[in-house]
Deep mutational scan, measured.
Amino acid sequence: EVTIKANLIFANGSTQTAEFKGTFEKATSEAYAYADTLKKDNGEYTVDVADKGYTLNAKFAG
Results as ranks from 00 to 15, higher is better:
E44V: 09
S29G: 09
Y34M: 06
A11E: 08
T15V: 14
A61D: 13
A50H: 10
T55R: 03
Q16L: 14
G43P: 03
V49W: 15
S29M: 14
I4P: 00
A35G: 01
K59Y: 15
G22L: 02
T37Q: 12
F60D: 03
G53C: 06
S29I: 13
G62W: 07
V2M: 06
T17G: 05
S14N: 12
K26S: 13
V2E: 06
I4W: 00
G43M: 02
A6F: 14
K40V: 11
E44A: 11
K5A: 06
E1N: 11
N57I: 14
S14W: 12
A35E: 01
T46Q: 09
F60A: 02
G13A: 05
F10R: 01
A50G: 09
N7V: 14
Q16E: 13
T23Y: 07
N7T: 09
L38S: 04
S29W: 12
K52G: 15
I9A: 06
A33Y: 07
F24I: 08
S14K: 14
I9C: 11
T15P: 04
T23R: 06
D48Q: 13
G22V: 04
V2G: 03
A11K: 09
I9Q: 08
T15F: 12
A18C: 15
T55L: 08
A61F: 14
D51I: 01
K26P: 01
A6S: 05
Y45A: 03
E1R: 08
N57P: 03
K40F: 11
S14T: 14
A50V: 12
L8C: 11
I9K: 07
E25Y: 09
L38W: 13
T37L: 13
A33F: 08
K40M: 10
D41L: 13
N57T: 14
L8R: 00
V47R: 01
D51M: 03
L56E: 04
K5Q: 09
K5D: 03
E30G: 05
T37E: 12
L38T: 02
T3K: 07
K40T: 11
I4A: 00
G13F: 04
T55M: 05
D36Q: 07
G13L: 05
F20A: 01
A50F: 11
A61P: 08
G13S: 05
L8P: 01
Y34I: 02
F24T: 03
T28I: 12
A61N: 13
N12K: 02
K39S: 10
D48E: 15
N12L: 04
E19I: 15
D51C: 07
Q16K: 11
T37H: 10
V2W: 05
T28S: 08
N12P: 01
E1Y: 14
V49Q: 06
A6W: 07
S14R: 11
N57S: 07
L56G: 04
T37C: 14
I9G: 03
F10M: 08
D48F: 13
T28D: 03
T37A: 14
D41H: 11
T3I: 13
K39H: 04
T17L: 10
L38E: 04
T46A: 08
T17F: 11
L56D: 04
A6C: 15
E30W: 07
Y45R: 02
K5R: 13
V47S: 05
Y54W: 07
D48A: 11
T55D: 04
L38P: 00
A33I: 08
F60W: 04
T55Q: 07
T15H: 10
D48S: 13
G62P: 07
D41N: 10
A31N: 00
D51S: 03
A11S: 10
A33N: 08
T23K: 06
A61C: 14
T15G: 07
N57D: 06
N57L: 08
T46W: 10
N42P: 02
T37M: 14
S29H: 12
E30I: 06
